[in-house]
Design a protein around this nucleic acid. Sequence first.
DNA 1: AATGAAAACGGACCGCGGTCCGTTTGGCTC
DNA 2: GAGCCAAACGGACCGCGGTCCGTTTTCATT
Lengths: 199, 199
Amino acid sequence: MPDPLLLPMADQPTAERADAARNREALLCAARRLVEEQGVAAVTMEAVAAAAGVGKGTVFRRFDSREGLMAAVLDFSETAWQASVISGPPPLGPGPDPWERLLAFGRSRLESTLVHADLIRAAGASGSRAAGAYSFAAMHVRHLLDSLGVDGDLPILATALLAPLEIPILDQQLHSDGFDVERLLAGWEDLARRITGHA
Amino acid sequence: MPDPLLLPMADQPTAERADAARNREALLCAARRLVEEQGVAAVTMEAVAAAAGVGKGTVFRRFDSREGLMAAVLDFSETAWQASVISGPPPLGPGPDPWERLLAFGRSRLESTLVHADLIRAAGASGSRAAGAYSFAAMHVRHLLDSLGVDGDLPILATALLAPLEIPILDQQLHSDGFDVERLLAGWEDLARRITGHA
DNA sequence: AATGAAAACGGACCGCGGTCCGTTTGGCTC
DNA sequence: GAGCCAAACGGACCGCGGTCCGTTTTCATT
């Protein structure tokens, strides 16, 4: 019988077994290498499995699907970006002027999305949103809007601001419509001005 | 030697051969039936080919890919909707008040997108945009914005208005964030008000 | 009607994402 | 350390999207 004094520790429901954790790490590592050496298209589940020295079934057990694996790879880069938004230097990081911060956010988000475009596309539905109720970006924008004294349905307005920066919309504008990045950025800042009512 | 007097007629480069046209029709027909009887997921290229009584290769020859086929099926419904926007009854169709028309457009577009959601997802990148330089919807919104006297980069502003009505964004808001359709619609109208500067 | 070349056809074939299930392994308890 | 069970493993297997290429059909020309 387990000691009842040890039970209330309430660690996570069931931790990951040692071999499982090791394999997860090896797989993520192999996937990252494949992405940067041969591009996203070359990242086959079988290739990743082989590169990590495990069976194909294991990849699926750890990441559910190719999209899940891509999302995990993406998360790696994404986390660094989030950190610079939360605690980096102004104007992107915390600073006195929310408006400047919003502009910096838009520019940074646009760049970051374009850099990881292939990965985001490959991550499918998991490419844009995080695990929690709101994605990090939505929460942040909502917060900035609040700081700017905007009133209205802030979660919805935040989405309206983020939507034109999502990959499907960017793809259309850049590749079908032929707009260039400068124009998109200027347009986005205009949109932000109209939504916030900022001078 | 071909008669030079007949050459300058300049009909379309090369018309579709009779059997090809017949098969295209049969395939589209079969695909539509499969969609409405068994859902989009059941629409396999092989299934469509079998239902139309042709070989699998023919389906690809006519529609390039599954996405292409889906886009063709979608186009069928889409055309009817476009007609009602162009020449239907107000407020969606032509009328005296562009603002009311814009609101009607948003509502109608949202509904239509949700109704065909599965098909649009299956049509991938071809799901949202048309063949020409601008999709029909973008052109229409751009025109309405112009009628309302909005100034700025109208193509970009039109995209900003359409982006929150695209499937990926709707999916996130409806399924991850848990917003309901009423709220999305109210939010969109607010967005339209802010963008146009309408009272 | 005969003919010849371009276009269309069909189905075998390939690669990849995803599943299944018999086998192995890690980490408990005694 | 022995023994047990849940968890993890691995690779054969399946279905589908997409390609390829030898065969058939259409149609313009004569």
